[in-house]
Design a binder for these strands. Sequence first.
DNA 1: GACCAGCTTTCATCCTGTGAAAGTGGGAGT
DNA 2: ACTCCCACTTTCACAGGATGAAAGCTGGTC
Lengths: 253, 253
Amino acid sequence: MSVLGRAFSVLDAFADGTPSLRLTAIAERSALPLPTALRLVRELVAWGGLERQSDGSYRLGSRLWTLGGQAPCRRRLVETGRPVLDRLNRTTGLPVLLAALDGIRFVVVDGVGSTLRPGTMLPPHATAAGKVLLAYLPDSRRRQVLADLVRLTPYTLTAPGPLDRQLATIRAGAPASAWEEWRLGENEVAVPVDPFAAQGPAAALTVTARSAAQARRAVPLVARAALTISGSLRPAGQATACAARADAAGEPR
Amino acid sequence: MSVLGRAFSVLDAFADGTPSLRLTAIAERSALPLPTALRLVRELVAWGGLERQSDGSYRLGSRLWTLGGQAPCRRRLVETGRPVLDRLNRTTGLPVLLAALDGIRFVVVDGVGSTLRPGTMLPPHATAAGKVLLAYLPDSRRRQVLADLVRLTPYTLTAPGPLDRQLATIRAGAPASAWEEWRLGENEVAVPVDPFAAQGPAAALTVTARSAAQARRAVPLVARAALTISGSLRPAGQATACAARADAAGEPR
DNA sequence: GACCAGCTTTCATCCTGTGAAAGTGGGAGT
DNA sequence: ACTCCCACTTTCACAGGATGAAAGCTGGTC
């Protein structure tokens, strides 16, 4: 692994949302010897990617915020999606989320009425949005995910077979759903945004309800909202989906 | 300069808001030989900090967006500031901006009703918000800025003396103003958010108007809004301002 | 007062990043 | 059709920067 790779794994130590970490914790999470972690952390601080707090711990820095906010693919998605999310939240009265693929992770991109903040990671197999994105993943990666289905509630699907059948129906155009498979009391439905893009859908639009019936009732509205987003995403340029990165576990090409 | 430094200057090539750059442009902006730039860019792409587009050019990637969105100091500022900006925009009918220091740059953090997007850089000496932040900068850095005052309109203050006197009144508690000093037809007033923090104010709150009179009339509302933000920022923790980074051109310690 | 954890510094070793130079490929010009 | 040119990519011998074990700090705790 190169120097840069190490530095990135230092940053990735914060990816799960931990607001602040001490040096030792960073070193541990990124599997680096302490002096190495220290050197990297210092360079990151000098740049502004990390900040040192008065108690000696570190947190992600403002420079990272400024740069990250400029990422065109996500910015467009949020800017075009936001008004639609707002309306969908008002018409359904339910928390609304927009989720997308980030490398190999599934993350919340934006939300209205939900407690989940942008950047939160979602379990691929146990959320409706996760299933949508999973359905359109290239075979090899999808199989990777299906190989390790963690039980999160009594209702989580942990058998690859049934889940894969659900994914097939999603690809065929059915809305995705997850009935208390991630958290008890949360029933979600989700549909893809721009499902016919070459790279797969740009995002998944999802609502959460107390009951499955309530969630089902929202499906038409969610589907229409997703179409609206797809529509305003398409015309202004091909730069829709964030390019899938060619990562280590990637496919040929 | 270390490897990391080089990689950061590659990312910084996008800091001015350029949505996409070709390899050659990146190499030029970051003053790196082409093969070096290529190697760094590739590693950044593999991580997700950059993305390669179909035409071969690069843009900031989604991984950067996800990470950056987690930066605690900025997130808190935006989350607590947003409702106040909304209200201020409604009561004044004017575009509202929240700006802060990012390393050595002055950037827009959030806005309502303005065309300036978060991440946009502001000229320190020719905007009201810039003057507020400049006023509270440590002496050495302030002098650095005062030494190079670029003329942007016929009304831009390019003499250090008068500007420095304005900064003194701002430190004394007066609202900052800029009358068409950045762009013709734009008159701004600004006040600090949390001006008594150890590190200087967390941000500057500013409104823009067609006429100076209109801007002046808004001052009390802006000041009250800034107090509201300061108030909700303070209690929940000391993590208010983003730590000023110890950069190359920095002071002792 | 001794111990410990968490952090920082040092330094000899060596591996990784470096960039000049040469190679590739596609598009424009004639 | 041929050539030129530009943007990008690959190669490779070299050098300098990164490495991490070991040894010092510091402040808190028993």
